[in-house]
């Protein structure tokens, strides 16, 4: 299956320095909006103990997991600092204030 862009809402739906969840057939994703207005989407599942990253505090282009304070880069999905681990990042784009994420990229990579 090739990847497909799906509209999930508008940029205004996400608070600045905040996140919203998107439930998909690939699992729950978290879509973030940073103070600078950048948008990122990653799996809503901390590589440490599965904490919901969408609930964390957003700072710069990273988020701190609410369960045990791991800091995850929104750009790369990798844990920062001394911790090791990564979550899947999902392509996202904004067009005219509308948000689109690319689903199916995981299947593509697996194939």
């Amino acid at each position: 299956m090739s990847s497909k862009w799906v509209e999930v809402g508008s940029l205004d739906d996400i608070p600045s320095r905040g996140a919203r969840c998107v439930d998909t057939y690939e699992g729950r994703l978290a879509v973030f909006r940073t103070a600078e207005g950048q948008v990122f989407a990653i799996e809503d599942h901390c590589p440490h103990k599965g904490g919901p990253l969408s609930q964390g505090i957003v700072h710069g282009a990273s988020v701190t997991c609410p369960l045990h304070n791991w800091v995850i880069s929104l750009e790369t999905g990798k844990a920062l600092g001394a911790d090791e681990g990564a979550v899947r990042t999902v392509p996202v784009r904004v067009e005219g204030g509308r948000l689109f994420i690319a689903l199916g990229s995981r299947a593509e990579k697996a194939a």
Binding site: V8, C21, L103, G104
Partner: peptide
Amino acid sequence: KHEFRPMAVVGFAEA
């Protein structure tokens, strides 16, 4: 309100 529900639900059908 936004805190308590997902922004979107994408099922196989939509995809």
